[in-house]
Simulated assay, not measured.
Amino acid sequence: MIVETAGGPVRLAANLKWLFTELPFEQRFDAAAEAGFTGVEFASPYSLPAETVRGLLDAAGLEQVLINTPAGPAGSPTAMGAAYVPGAQQEFREGVRLALEYAAVLGTSVIHVMSGLRPAEADAEHAFATYVANIGWAAEQARGTGVRIALEAINKRDQPRYGLATMETAAAVAEAVDPETVGVLFDVYHAQVDGGNLIERFERLLPFIAHIQIADNPGRGEPGTGEIAYDRVLARIAASTYDGWIGCEYGPVADTRAGLAWTERIAR
Rank of each mutant, 00 (worst) to 15 (best):
A267F: 09
E175K: 13
F208I: 02
S109C: 01
V3R: 04
A210G: 11
P70I: 05
A235E: 05
R257A: 15
V177Q: 06
T145C: 04
F25A: 06
T145Q: 13
G75P: 04
T225F: 00
V188I: 15
G55H: 02
G244Y: 01
G144P: 12
Q89G: 15
F186E: 04
E203M: 09
W137P: 12
E168S: 08
V96L: 05
W245S: 14
T21A: 03
A60P: 08
E41F: 05
S47W: 08
A122S: 14
A150N: 03
T256M: 03
V147M: 14
S109W: 00
P252T: 01
E152F: 07
E22A: 13
R97F: 00
D187N: 12
G81M: 03
I246P: 10
L206Q: 04
M1K: 12
T225D: 04
G81F: 06
P9T: 11
T21G: 01
G81P: 11
I154G: 05
W262K: 09
P86W: 01
V65H: 02
G116L: 06
I149T: 10
V40T: 13
Q89V: 13
Q90I: 14
I266P: 02
E91K: 04
V105G: 02
R220E: 01
G36L: 08
R232I: 06
G244N: 10
F202N: 09
I209P: 11
A127E: 12
F25Q: 04
N68A: 08
F29L: 06
L62K: 09
A176D: 11
S76P: 02
A43R: 10
P207R: 10
R265D: 02
V65Q: 03
G259Q: 03
I209G: 06
A99F: 00
E94G: 11
Y102H: 02
P119K: 13
P73H: 10
V233W: 00
L100M: 06
A6M: 13
L23E: 09
I149E: 04
V65Y: 02
A88N: 11
A33G: 14
A138R: 05
A50N: 02
I209S: 10
R204Q: 09
Q90K: 14
G87K: 10
F92S: 07
E101Y: 02
